[in-house]
Computed example of a mutant assay.
Amino acid sequence: MAVRIVASGLEEAAKVIAQIADPDVPQYLDELGGIVTSQTQKRIRSEKTSPAGEAWKPNREGTSILFRSGALDDSIHHEVAGNSVEVGSNLVYAGIHQHGGKIVPKNKNALAFSSGGQFFMAKSVTMPARPYVGISAANEPEIIAFTEAFISAGAGDAR
């Protein structure tokens, strides 16, 4: 007595398995970087909280925090390097806003600046940290959904 097993659809299953096993990592990272860039810009434009959900300390002028000219928001970008993606800004002042710190004069005895229409001179200024780059708990579902769609759609047709 002979037993014959006929299986159909294995070619499609093999394609799905191959896509999961060998995804287009650079494309995935590039698209993921675009999502995190967009989430970071939303945080700067309207959310005004750190990735941990903490409200940013108000500024002296009472204006939109981290969005006076829009330059920081416009500078947010991502770069794929190998098996990682980095999101951030290349503006010289981006780091002091993310991490906070003390600003001291380099070539003079005091810092000179205006704020709220008033002129100030100070030996130093301490900037509070206002973290804007990072992934919040509210961002995670979008990233997970994108990742699942990327894998299930054939590693490249998720969008």
Rank of each mutant, 00 (worst) to 15 (best):
R4Q: 14
I5K: 09
G9D: 10
A13D: 04
V16L: 15
I17P: 00
A21E: 13
P23M: 03
Y28C: 05
Y28P: 01
L32W: 06
G34S: 11
G34H: 09
Q39V: 00
K42P: 01
R43H: 06
R45Y: 08
S50M: 03
P51Y: 00
P51G: 08
A52L: 04
E54P: 00
R60L: 12
E61K: 11
G62H: 11
I65Q: 05
I65Y: 02
I65A: 06
I65L: 13
A71Q: 10
L72R: 04
S75G: 10
H77L: 10
G82C: 13
N83W: 02
S84G: 12
S84A: 15
S84P: 01
G88F: 03
S89D: 06
S89A: 09
S89W: 01
V92Q: 13
Q98W: 02
G100N: 12
G101Q: 10
G101M: 09
K102Q: 11
V104H: 07
P105V: 08
N107M: 07
K108P: 03
K108E: 15
A110D: 12
A110P: 11
S114Q: 14
S115Y: 09
F119W: 07
A122P: 06
K123S: 14
S124Y: 10
Y132G: 06
V133D: 03
I135W: 00
I135F: 01
A137R: 12
I144Q: 13
T147I: 05
E148H: 07
A149E: 10
F150E: 05
I151S: 01
S152A: 14
